[in-house]
Deep mutational scan, measured.
Amino acid sequence: MTEYKLVVVGAGGVGKSALTIQLIQNHFVDEYDPTIEDSYRKQVVIDGETCLLDILDTAGQEEYSAMRDQYMRTGEGFLCVFAINNTKSFEDIHHYREQIKRVKDSEDVPMVLVGNKCDLPSRTVDTKQAQDLARSYGIPFIETSAKTRQGVDDAFYTLVREIRKHKEKMSKDGKKKKKKSKTKCVIM
């Protein structure tokens, strides 16, 4: 069974824990209790493949930012979460993405942009803004509501699919490099 290491990042209060708990335990946590770091595991079937999701729910508070490099190193894919009623959390996505790329030393890291709290009427981040940002990053965008469960499975499952595509691409690139290195030079 394939294991996928997913990391949920975003500013404090955007609903990272609520999304994760909704996926794992099928219930909505409405009281806000700032996370330092929590880890969850769940076995699911995605596109006919049974897999184990190892999900790291991270601290959004700035005082825990020193811990970010460590979990970013171990993560295979990242859910970059903002709240649709919090423009600052949307603007912060850029910083999370840049930090992930720096730590992973790669421009090509599996990510999904997630606009959470889409059940709320007080939207300050337009869907088109988020779609445009995701398009500019070359990553999928999904709106979710941890409260109603809308888009929750889709967000995590899409990230797994992005990781699969990335692994497939990397193995193809690896095979191309191996083929090239088999060419021999004969000096007579």
Rank of each mutant, 00 (worst) to 15 (best):
D153W: 05
K182H: 14
S181F: 12
T35P: 00
Q61D: 14
K88G: 08
E3D: 13
I21E: 13
M67W: 00
G48L: 06
I142N: 05
D126S: 09
V152P: 11
I84L: 14
S17N: 00
C51K: 12
I84Q: 14
K175D: 10
Y4S: 12
V44H: 05
Q61R: 03
V7T: 06
R97Q: 07
I139S: 05
I100S: 02
D173I: 09
E31G: 06
H95F: 10
R149C: 15
D153T: 07
M188D: 14
S122H: 08
K101Q: 11
T158F: 12
Y64I: 00
K177M: 11
V125S: 11
S65G: 05
K165E: 09
M111P: 04
T2S: 12
K184D: 15
V45R: 11
F28K: 01
R97W: 15
M188L: 05
L6G: 04
N116C: 14
A134L: 12
S181E: 13
K128Q: 05
K104F: 09
H95S: 14
M188Q: 12
V103N: 03
S136P: 11
S106T: 13
K117Y: 14
Y40Q: 00
Q131E: 11
G12K: 07
F90M: 15
I93E: 02
R68V: 00
Q70F: 02
A66P: 12
I21C: 14
T58L: 00
S89Q: 05
V103W: 08
D47V: 04
K104R: 13
I84C: 13
V7D: 05
F82H: 10
D126L: 08
T127G: 06
I21M: 15
V8A: 09
R41Y: 11
G13E: 14
I187M: 13
D153H: 06
E3R: 06
R68T: 02
L133Y: 15
Y96A: 04
G75R: 02
L52N: 15
A130V: 11
Q129T: 11
E3K: 11
G15A: 02
D108K: 13
Y4M: 15
M67A: 00
G48E: 10
E62K: 04
I84M: 15
Y157F: 09
S106Q: 14
K117G: 13
Y4P: 15
G13C: 11
E162N: 11
K104D: 03
D132P: 10
G10N: 07
S136V: 09
R102A: 14
T124W: 07
K128I: 09
C185Y: 04
D154Q: 08
M72L: 01
A130G: 06
D57R: 00
D47F: 13
D126Q: 07
P121S: 11
K180Q: 09
E37V: 01
G75S: 04
E31C: 11
N26T: 08
G138I: 03
V103L: 06
I163D: 01
I46L: 13
V109G: 03
K165N: 10
R135D: 14
D69Y: 02
C185P: 12
D54Y: 03
F90R: 15
G174F: 02
D33E: 05
D154G: 07
L19D: 14
L23D: 03
L120M: 11
D173Q: 04
S17T: 09
Y96F: 14
L53V: 09
H94K: 15
D108M: 11
K128W: 05
S65I: 09
D154P: 07
T35F: 01
G174T: 09
D57F: 00
N26A: 12
Q131V: 10
K5T: 06
K177L: 04
L53R: 03
T50C: 07
G48I: 05
P34R: 01
H166Q: 10
K175R: 14
A155E: 06
N86A: 10
E76G: 03
I100K: 01
A83V: 03
D105Q: 05
K16T: 03
E3T: 06
R68E: 02
Q129H: 04
Q131T: 11
Y96D: 01
Q61V: 05
M72H: 01
T35I: 01
D105T: 08
G138W: 03
Q22G: 08
K182R: 06
L52M: 12
D105W: 04
V109K: 02
L133S: 06
K184Q: 07
V114L: 09
T74V: 11
V109H: 02
G48S: 10
P140L: 02
K176I: 05
A134T: 11
D105F: 14
L19T: 13
V125P: 10
T127Q: 04
K167P: 06
L6I: 13
I36N: 00
N116H: 14
I93S: 06
L23F: 11
K16L: 00
L79H: 01
S17Y: 01
S122V: 08
C185S: 14
I100E: 01
E98T: 04
K104G: 04
L113N: 06
T87G: 06
Y157P: 09
M170E: 15
K184L: 03
C80N: 03
A155P: 07
T127W: 05
R149Q: 14
I84A: 14
E76P: 02
G77K: 01
D30Y: 08
T20N: 07
P121F: 09
Q99S: 04
A59F: 00
Y157C: 10
A18F: 00
E3S: 05
K182D: 15
A59M: 00
V14T: 10
K177N: 05
R164H: 14
G12Y: 10
L133I: 09
D30V: 08
D108R: 08
C80F: 15
F82M: 08
Y137I: 09
G151F: 11
Q129C: 15
G13R: 07
Q22I: 08
K177T: 11
V14N: 09
G48W: 06
G13P: 15
G15T: 01
Q129V: 07
F82G: 15
C51W: 12
Y40F: 03
V44S: 12
G12H: 11
Q43W: 06
G174L: 10
Y32R: 02
K169E: 07
E107Y: 06
G10C: 07
V112W: 03
T183F: 05
E37Y: 03
Q61S: 12
L52Y: 12
E62V: 03
A130K: 09
N116M: 15
K88W: 09
K128V: 05
Y4W: 06
K178C: 10
I93F: 11
A134W: 12
A155T: 08
A130L: 12
S39G: 15
Q129E: 10
K5R: 12
S136M: 09
A134E: 15
L120A: 09
Q150L: 06
S122G: 12
S65M: 09
L133C: 06
Q70A: 12
E62S: 04
V29T: 10
I24W: 02
S136K: 10
E63V: 03
M72F: 01
V125G: 11
F78E: 00
F78R: 00
K182E: 11
E63Q: 07
L113V: 09
C118D: 14
T127L: 10
S136R: 07
I55V: 08
G75T: 03
Q99C: 04
I24N: 09
I139A: 05
D108G: 07
L23S: 13
A18D: 02
K167W: 08
L6P: 04
T74W: 12
K104L: 05
E98M: 08
N26R: 11
E31R: 04
D126C: 08
C51Y: 12
V160P: 03
A130I: 12
G77Q: 01
V160R: 11
A59D: 00
T124Q: 11
C118I: 10
C185T: 08
K180M: 10
L159V: 06
G13T: 07
P110A: 04
V9E: 01
V103G: 02
Y64F: 09
I46V: 13
L120T: 10
A134H: 06
G15E: 02
R164E: 14
F82A: 14
A146S: 06
V45C: 10
A66L: 04
Q131K: 06
R135L: 08
I36L: 11
R97N: 05
K165Y: 12
T127R: 04
M188T: 11
G174R: 10
G151I: 08
N26F: 07
V160Y: 10
P140G: 03
T50F: 10
K104T: 10
H166G: 09
C80Y: 06
D54S: 04
R68L: 00
E37A: 00
D153A: 08
A11C: 12
R149E: 07
